[in-house]
């Protein structure tokens, strides 16, 4: 039955995509604003580039390495950013979620489709940046290994799936607690530090690295970025992907569970 739901969602996907693009165009000012809120990696680029220029390479990162790293981080973030926790929080609070519960598609699948529908526009914006990155940082900063490039695509898709599962879990918490957005805030704080968004993870003290590698944060940003700029060998990459897969499955199971329990509670007590 769930499989049928997914199939239905896939059939509905082209129209969701169309709506998504039309919305992005209609609200292009908001879109630009949103784009500007994700420029943090560019600021970090300026910062770390300066650090490297001033005192020489830092932990194996030269100025150009930093540039490549943060440009890649920018692109990956564009492709994998998910805001579903905010949407869900609002809809649960205002009771709009009832409409979704009545539809024949599982709400999480519908949310996922809506979030994906924004991607083409983002792609349009991040592709030029990606190309610029390629030329500015030089070809040798992007991996030439086709296998690794394939793994990069895989891990980016996985990063999106993982981020969505986590955000959906946090969003579904709104069924139970008032301050689910505070949880999201907390999550973002951890994410910024532990995913490689502020600092490449390899610059952290060595004793922290194994823990950081096992946590889900790296899989959401650091892993695809490091793959793209050729900092990982195939074995390391596969190891990272295995961890990523584990977290994706765990988070989606958790999201489905929390959402299901929340929806049952919601229909028992009302909004």
């Amino acid at each position: 039955m769930r499989g049928a739901g997914v199939a239905r969602a896939l059939r509905a996907f082209p129209s969701l995509l169309r709506v998504g693009v039309a919305e992005a165009v209609a609200y292009r000012a908001e879109f630009v604003v949103w784009l500007l809120t994700t420029t943090m990696p560019l600021i970090m680029l300026a910062l770390w580039g300066e650090v490297a220029r001033e005192g020489g390479p830092l932990g194996g990162f030269s100025g150009a390495d930093f540039t490549a790293y943060f440009l890649a981080a920018f692109v990956v973030r564009q492709l994998t950013g998910v805001w579903v926790a905010w949407d869900m929080n609002r809809e649960i609070r205002e009771g709009l979620i009832s409409m979704r519960l009545l539809r024949p598609i599982h709400p999480l699948v519908a949310y996922a489709a809506e979030n994906l529908a924004v991607l083409p526009m983002r792609l349009l914006l991040s592709l030029p940046v990606a190309l610029a990155a390629l030329f500015i940082a030089g070809r040798d900063h992007v991996t030439h290994d086709p296998a690794l490039l394939g793994l990069f695509c895989l891990s980016t898709a996985g990063a999106w799936l993982l981020g969505f599962g986590l955000m959906a879990t946090i969003g579904a918490l709104a069924f139970f607690i008032e301050s689910s957005l505070a949880v999201a805030d907390l999550w973002f704080g951890l994410f910024f530090v532990c995913s490689g968004y502020f600092v490449p993870l390899s610059l952290f003290p060595a004793w922290l690295r194994p823990t950081l590698d096992l946590l889900p944060f790296r899989a959401m940003l650091g892993l695809p970025v490091e793959l793209l700029i050729g900092r990982l060998g195939r074995a390391e990459a596969l190891h990272g992907l295995a961890i990523e897969l584990f977290w994706i499955l765990a988070c989606w199971a958790l999201a489905l569970f929390v959402f299901g329990a929340g929806a049952r509670r919601y229909s028992a007590y009302g909004a």
Partner: peptide, 13 residues
């Protein structure tokens, strides 16, 4: 004014 549809959306940019 904008009519529905993807093309109209893009053109209206």
């Amino acid at each position: 004014r904008r009519s529905a549809g993807l093309w109209a959306a893009l053109r209206s940019v």
